[in-house]
């Protein structure tokens, strides 16, 4: 058997510290994730300085556990990959500096990885990508349709003009009294309710692939506040179901429309909101009949949130193209989502 290429991959862009060992960009040997949700719950959302401090507490523990669980030593590794953006700068700095230090200490090449590319490559663990490919990337910070003609080539076809879908979930979660992060609970509530409020489907008929969720958020909040003022009690499950129906309708309609203009072999669903059952079920129900030649690749539930394994999968593509960083690599909190550096256009 040919020797596998092992990558030690770091992720610390928000409120999860994660280190993974990935073989050939497709097999997870370990994927250690330390989540700070319990901490940020106190504040109703991620506090950047608190997140940065937790990352320093966890970083070496995650490295040790990742190597131990993968049953490998530094000598077995071929490269170190790290998320260097986009994300919270103080949080990114911990992963970037730790990864650079490990690469230097053990004479390993360093691979700087775009966090969003990582999310898409989480689906690579399901099966190999076939191009062209479209990715619907939905998370707390992003809502995007990304077209890929080949590995490492990313073209944003549509994106949110205001709030990301995940952000809207967290904000209406606060109104419903659901603790941060609200997505999972609202998804569960939605399954027990009915779409009775018929919230707006923003931009659904517009001739582009962009999204907007701030109008929906406002309509939701106004509805709840108005009911409060007149002393009316609304069914929270119906509110959640109505909200989710609007989000999923918009995501579905734009995605199905983009597939008409861009025929692709695979549709990838990735990002934190890709764990939403309402969205997964709709895609599974509608894609096979409407686009029988497009295969649906759902990022595994465990890999929808931030994790090191997805960074290892994306980093492996760069490893094959020798896209390496050096000791001066810095965090780039507003890193653009574009072609990977030095990839052929």
């Amino acid at each position: 058997m040919e020797k596998q290429n092992l990558i030690l991959a770091f992720e610390s862009s928000c409120d999860e510290t994660s280190v993974a060992v990935v073989a050939d960009g497709q097999t997870i040997l370990s994927n250690v994730i330390a989540t700070q949700i319990n901490s940020h719950k106190r504040f109703g959302g991620v506090v950047p300085e608190v997140a940065s401090r937790h990352h320093i507490e966890e970083i070496t523990i995650c490295i040790e556990d990742a190597l131990k669980e993968a049953n490998v030593t530094y000598d077995d590794l071929d490269a170190v990959a790290v998320t260097y953006g986009p994300g919270l700068v103080g949080a990114l700095l911990v992963g970037v500096n730790a990864a650079k230090t490990v690469a230097y200490a053990h004479h390993l090449p360093l691979i700087p990885v775009n966090h969003m590319a990582g999310h898409i490559y989480a689906a690579r663990f399901v099966k190999p990508f076939e191009f062209p490919l479209m990715a619907l990337l939905v998370s707390g910070g992003h809502t995007e349709l990304v077209y890929m003609q080949a590995d490492g080539q990313f073209e944003i076809i549509g994106e949110t003009r205001d709030d990301a879908a995940g952000e809207a979930y967290d904000k209406i979660g606060r109104v419903l009294g659901v603790p941060y992060p609200a997505g999972k609970v609202i998804d569960e509530m939605a399954h027990q309710g009915q779409d009775t409020f018929n919230f707006p489907r923003a931009m659904i008929d517009e001739d582009n692939y962009d999204f907007s969720f701030s109008g929906l958020k406002s309509a939701f909040i106004n509805t709840v506040h108005h009911a409060d003022q007149i002393g009316e009690t609304l069914d929270k499950n119906d509110l959640a179901a109505s909200f989710q129906a609007s989000v999923v309708d918009v995501l579905m309609s734009k995605t199905l429309r983009v597939l008409k203009e861009y025929p692709v072999k695979q549709l990838v669903l990735a990002g934190g909101v890709a764990a939403n059952h309402g969205l997964r079920e709709r895609l599974q129900a509608e894609l096979p009949t409407k686009f029988p030649n497009t295969e649906l690749l759902l990022a595994p539930l465990k890999l929808c949130g931030d994790n090191g394994a997805m960074i290892g999968a994306a980093g492996y593509i760069q490893y094959q193209h020798h896209q390496f960083g050096d000791a001066s690599l810095n965090a780039d909190p507003s890193l653009e989502f574009d072609w990977m550096p030095k990839m052929p256009h």
Binding site: I56, I59, T60, I63, L93, N97, A98, V102, A105
Partner: peptide, 11 residues
């Protein structure tokens, strides 16, 4: 601290 801690830990 991240650099020092990681260097000491990893070596």
């Amino acid at each position: 601290v991240t650099t020092a801690k990681t260097l000491a830990f990893t070596l």
